Simulated scan of single mutants.
Amino acid sequence: MPTITPLTADALPEAGPELARLLIDSVDGGASVGFFAPLDFTTALHWWLALESPLRTGNALIWLAREEHRIVGTIGLRLTAYPTGRHRAEVSKLLVHSDARGQGLGRALLAHAEREAAAREHTLLFLDTETGSVAEGLYRRDGWTPVGTIPGFAHSPGGTLRPTTIFYKHLS
């Protein structure tokens, strides 16, 4: 199983190109993560590098799964700055490289983010995912509660409007 480590703002520039390739691989594989296919390297790299400030301020937390000195997965938490919402966090960009799928890495990354959130006293996590996707099945199997489905929420990488399901999970 790959090693899961935190990504720091200082390490982001070096990790950026690999993260861009991971994002491209995910989008090319049909993952609805906010981008149309084909996703070009420059756009993917700029998206990741724009996270330097949120990483530095602590408004974002990102973990990388590394295997044999390459990044094969990632997961993030977006934190709110509002005093009334500091108990919650949004799970973002759970990505697993296409050649590392089917080995439990998505589940391991999700469990890691849940443990890290709980350690920081975030008691409520939430996320959205494309309805009917492999990711939706993962969240259901891992005890996440669906809130509902929003039709036509986001375009798929191929440009078709797709529904999204909103999930939450209380942490102890």
Rank of each mutant, 00 (worst) to 15 (best):
R107K: 13
G85D: 13
L125G: 04
R141H: 08
H97F: 07
E68F: 08
R86H: 11
L110A: 08
E114V: 05
S133V: 02
L125E: 03
L125K: 03
S92W: 11
T149R: 00
N59M: 13
R86W: 07
T149A: 00
A118E: 15
L161H: 14
A154Y: 13
V91S: 05
G159M: 06
L110E: 09
G148Y: 02
T123G: 14
T164G: 14
R140E: 00
V72C: 10
P83F: 11
G73I: 04
L110W: 08
L127C: 03
E114W: 06
F153H: 07
R78G: 06
A135L: 02
V134I: 15
L94F: 09
L125D: 04
G106W: 02
L161N: 12
Y139F: 04
G102K: 05
G102P: 05
G143M: 00
E68W: 06
L127F: 02
L94K: 10
F153A: 04
L105R: 14
R101C: 08
R86F: 08
A117M: 08
R115D: 14
L125M: 09
L105G: 14
A118K: 14
T165H: 02
L105K: 15
L105S: 13
L94T: 11
L79D: 07
H112V: 05
P146Q: 05
R88Q: 15
G159F: 06
G76R: 11
L77I: 10
A135Y: 01
L94P: 06
T74S: 15
L125V: 04
G143N: 01
L138V: 03
L127A: 03
R101T: 15
A100G: 10
G73E: 04
D99K: 13
L161Y: 14
L105Y: 11
H87D: 05
A108Q: 12
G148P: 03
H155W: 10
E114G: 04
K93M: 10
F153K: 01
L124T: 08
L105W: 12
L161C: 10
L105A: 13
T165F: 00
V91E: 04
A60V: 06
T129K: 01
R88A: 15
Y168M: 02
Y82N: 11
R140N: 00
G132E: 05
A135D: 01
W144K: 00
W144P: 00
L95P: 07
E68T: 13
V134S: 12
A119P: 06
E130I: 02
T149N: 00
G85P: 07
L64F: 13
L109Y: 06
R66L: 15
L94N: 11
E114Y: 05
